[in-house]
Amino acid sequence: MMAAIQATLAGLLIVAGAAFFFIGTIGLLRLPDFYTRVHAVTKCDALGAGLVLLGLAILAGFDGSGIRIIALIALVLLSSPTAGHALARAAWRAGLEPWYRKSGHVGQ
């Protein structure tokens, strides 16, 4: 009984995570410019990886492997926004112009 609940929960989390990965991929292909793609990637990848790894941690049980996977979740959740910030700032300071729906439209 317990094992069945464990497996179901893990399966659901893995499928949900894979779905977010998929959305991130579509975003990477469809969105019009670098800045909008960073939006999609930082959020969807962090959540996708977090969900899949959480499912795997439940599957592995909270012994050695489980703790290692939780360390990986912490790593992904920390590194994803940080990498997004560093990359966005680098692009901004290198002078990459964002895409606007109406050309010449500049936010204040």
């Binding site: 960073v38 939006h39 930082t42 926004p81 910030h85 966005a88 901004w92």
Partner: peptide
């Protein structure tokens, strides 16, 4: 960055 629709750039 982790709230909807906004991302810090600089």
């Amino acid at each position: 960055t982790l709230t909807p629709g906004t991302h810090c750039v600089d």
